[in-house]
Amino acid sequence: MTFTEQIITIAIVVLGTMATRFLPFVIFNSKTKTPAYVQYLGKVLPSATMSLLVVFSLRHVDVSGVYHGMPDIIAVAVTVLLHQWKGNMFLSIGGGTILYMVLIQQVFI
């Protein structure tokens, strides 16, 4: 890919990203009422996305293996407990990820 093609590709990606960020504010400005289905999607999509990510990340857990998926189960449980306790998404995800990394590198070798 030449330098010119790289610049064009980056420009197209930037324009596409900006369009998806700004277009909702243009379409649903303060003068028009947001449709009910868009409000509904705003309520259900975050939970659906997180559920999809959990399923995606646990899809290859081998419960019949030596460790029976214990690092994964422990890390998910700690993530849920941290989120219930503090309600901070970054703390929950970060804590669960760090614990999982420690478990698979140090404990479940």
Rank of each mutant, 00 (worst) to 15 (best):
W85T: 14
R21Y: 12
A11H: 06
M50G: 01
F56I: 13
Y40R: 08
L23P: 03
V55F: 14
K86Q: 12
M1W: 03
L103I: 04
L99C: 10
G69R: 00
G94D: 05
T32E: 11
L15E: 06
L52I: 10
V66Q: 12
I104A: 03
L53P: 05
P24I: 00
G96F: 00
Q105L: 15
G87A: 08
Y40Q: 07
T97A: 15
G16Q: 09
K33Q: 11
L52M: 12
M101S: 06
K31Q: 14
M1S: 10
Y37S: 15
I104V: 15
R21H: 09
L99Q: 05
G69K: 01
A77F: 13
M50T: 07
V38W: 04
L103N: 01
I10N: 07
F90L: 15
L91S: 07
F56R: 15
M1L: 08
V76N: 01
N29A: 06
R21T: 10
F56V: 13
A75P: 00
F3Q: 11
I109W: 07
M89C: 09
P24L: 04
Y67M: 05
L15K: 06
H60L: 12
S47K: 01
P35T: 03
A36P: 00
F56S: 15
F28N: 00
Y40D: 07
T34S: 09
N29C: 04
I7Y: 10
D62K: 05
V78F: 10
Y100W: 12
T49K: 03
Y40T: 09
G69C: 03
L52P: 04
V80C: 12
A48T: 09
G96S: 04
T49N: 07
V13N: 08
T17I: 12
F22Q: 14
K86V: 08
T79E: 03
S57G: 11
L23D: 07
H83R: 11
T49E: 06
G42A: 07
I8G: 03
P46F: 01
P46W: 01
T4K: 15
Y100C: 04
V76G: 02
Q105S: 15
D62T: 03
V38Q: 06
S51A: 15
T20I: 13
L82K: 01
A11P: 03
I93V: 15
S92Y: 00
Q105Y: 10
T32V: 14
P46H: 05
P46Y: 03
I109T: 13
N88D: 15
V76I: 13
L82W: 01
